[in-house]
Write a protein that binds this DNA or RNA. Structure first.
Lengths: 191, 191
DNA sequence: AAAGGCACTTAATCTAGATTAAGAAATGTA
DNA sequence: TACATTTCTTAATCTAGATTAAGTGCCTTT
């Protein structure tokens, strides 16, 4: 069974016909590492679901500093929610970190699917609810934990990513500089 | 027209009967300032919609330090999403800051309403989508802006709250100590 | 009116994490 | 294989914001 159908079935049950319909509305693509799927300033018209490999979303502020908003590996969705919803130019880049196979669902087809399979409204509501809870927790962590505590939490939650993602990007995700991250890491290893 | 019906009509259109049904499933209560509507450790079974007054959600970490997650004034929803969705004990408090009239929607009734008025699934999806985008932006702001820049952004976005909320709570929302906030504010006033 | 408790301010001191800089490893590329 | 580019490390210095502490003014409650 395709990974994405398995993913849907975590929250809703689709009939075989509905599964067919869903699969007919998506596109699957292979991308090499470093490929940019979405540039800041563009209008995001697609949701991305990762079959394999790793992606990230990030922005670049005027100081030319990158800030990683999220990583996505096998079984995760990623996109620029702001731009996708508002259909205005966003400020996120979406980039492949490790060679990836990605499912593309256009906003257009997503709306069609909402009409044809109303249950999907429920699926995406739950997906976004969970995402919201995760971002709320991450925000509170950034307000209340030290960099070291955030790193330990990240390790226990996303151990799989640590090998696959350049550590400067993990630093950025945690909100510290690569230099400080390096120092912190070697301090933790010495323990 | 009740504020909450007006609120629903921002994203969906309800028939008069549906409006009636909705109104029959909610409860309206008055609360004095400082009242706690939800304690950390409790399971959240209710969504709150503010008719008037101001509420906040916050947690308290082991160091006995409060961290404000969100404010809500007239026309805003507030709750402990994590606890509400998982039905596990949460770690948020929800408290009245300024005497308030609040609409209560129980999780139970919300589920019933999803059945009876499927459009509501759309409404809450959109509500949560917007909330998610806002938290993503706030997280990125915390990663990339200085406290002063965050404060200026807060002022331009939530000017109404500045008069109503004790400034130590705004400090907490922004992620700085009350002392530093005070210093920062007087520095900005001197300009 | 007194008294206790908050919220806010000011100021001195301290520190987590940033910045700058330079070298070492790793990776890509011809 | 060598060269270039990027990533990571180490270390010195710096700073935004924390901590500690003391004082002021304003509500509450009695």
């Amino acid at each position: 069974m395709p990974l994405i159908i398995e993913n849907l079935s975590k929250h809703i049950t689709l009939t075989p016909q509905e599964q067919e319909l869903f699969l007919s509305k998506i596109e699957i693509k292979q991308y090499k590492a470093k490929t940019i799927l979405l540039n800041a300033g563009e209008i995001c018209a697609t949701s991305y679901f990762v079959n394999s490999g790793v992606l990230r979303s990030f922005n670049i502020n005027d100081n030319i500093v990158e800030h990683v908003l999220s990583f996505a590996c096998s079984g995760w969705w990623i996109g620029d929610m702001y731009s996708l919803l508002s259909q205005k130019p966003g400020n996120l880049f979406i980039q492949v970190i490790e060679d990836a196979e990605v499912v593309l669902l256009s906003k257009e087809n997503q709306e069609i699917l909402y009409q044809e399979i109303p249950k999907l409204e429920r699926f995406f509501r739950i997906l976004i609810e969970n995402s919201l809870v995760a971002y709320q927790e991450r925000l509170m962590d950034n307000l209340s934990l030290t960099a070291e505590e955030r790193f330990e939490k990240f390790c226990s939650k996303h151990h799989d990513l640590i090998q696959k993602v350049p550590q400067k990007q993990i630093a950025s995700y945690l909100g510290v500089t690569p230099e400080f991250f390096s120092k912190m890491k070697s301090k933790l290893l010495r323990k």
